[in-house]
């Protein structure tokens, strides 16, 4: 059984991560780590005591401590897409525990909140033994989701357009994710000015979908453009098969749900 470590500062936590490497599991809310990581490692490091649960707002943007829970997102954030994503994670007890930081590291197809954060072009900040390091969430995932320290903070600017999150699940609440989509679309004179599209459950981690974004930028948000974006997203997806849904179904739902999200935005 893993030895339980309780760092009292970020420095101490970063030191423990550096010292124990892959033999250490980080326990924030515990909802994933306690089941999938802690039983297989020598050290479990609890970070709840480090706080990191502040929500700060500045000029429309947000700075979220990595320990902010799903419950806090539901209760305190004025961004419906994030609230919707948080609401879909487990039941009330789990939402009181699960953190936004944990969601970024969730095993696919989970990671609904992270999918929205990708569509918000969020950045993540790690506290390492060499100090703070900030990078785009997208880059973090693209570089293999390797953390060299403790994830402390997620920052995002105000959404650059209409932001919608949709989740495909088999139950209305507390459903394992089949796939999820988040789209942030800025319309400029009836044409798509900027598009930020993310898909969850369609690969090893939530991913931005540049091809779908390109299919929209500069075009009117009409049926043809929406269908094209859906098709691109499905093509770019490489989902897995599990007990809940097959690869075939997931790929199809990526297109279906992205189209629904975009139509919702088009309808205003």
């Amino acid at each position: 059984m893993a030895e339980y470590l309780r760092p009292s500062s970020l420095e101490e936590a970063a030191g423990m991560i550096a010292a124990h490497g892959s033999t250490l599991a980080i326990v924030a809310g515990g909802t994933s780590a306690m089941r999938f990581a802690v039983p297989y490692v020598a050290y479990a490091m609890g970070v709840r005591g480090l706080g990191m649960n502040e929500i700060e707002r500045s000029s429309g943007g947000l700075s979220l401590g990595a320990g902010v829970t799903m419950r806090q997102i539901r209760d305190s954030l004025p961004i419906p897409a994030l609230q919707d994503a948080a609401r879909g994670v487990g039941g009330p007890a789990l939402q009181n525990m699960a953190t936004i930081g944990g969601n970024i590291f969730a095993h696919p197809p989970n990671g609904d909140v992270a999918t929205v954060l990708l569509a918000m072009d969020a950045t993540v900040t790690f506290f390492t033994t060499n100090g703070e390091r900030t990078q785009k969430l997208e880059e973090f995932y693209d570089s293999g989701a390797q953390a060299d320290g403790l994830l402390t903070r997620i920052d995002c600017a105000a959404p650059g357009g209409e932001l919608v999150f949709l989740k495909c699940g088999r139950q209305r609440f507390n459903s394992r994710t089949v796939i999820s989509v988040a789209a942030c679309i800025g319309l400029d004179n009836g044409k798509v000015g900027n598009a930020c599209i993310a898909v969850g459950g369609a690969g090893a981690h939530p991913m931005r979908c540049a091809a779908a974004e390109q299919a929209l930028i500069g075009r009117a948000l009409d049926d043809a453009a929406i269908t094209a974006a859906g098709d691109e997203a499905a093509r770019a997806s490489s989902p897995g098969t599990d007990a809940v849904a097959s690869e075939w179904y997931r790929r199809r739902m990526v297109a279906t749900y992205l189209c629904r999200a975009l139509r919702q935005i088009a309808a205003g």
């Binding site: 088999r170 139950q171 209305r172 609440f173 098969t241 599990d242 007990a243 809940v244």
Partner: peptide
């Protein structure tokens, strides 16, 4: 393959 191991993957109505 893909046999459920828990209540997350064994599907039942809520």
């Amino acid at each position: 393959d893909h046999a459920p191991r828990d209540f997350q993957t064994y599907q039942m109505p809520g």
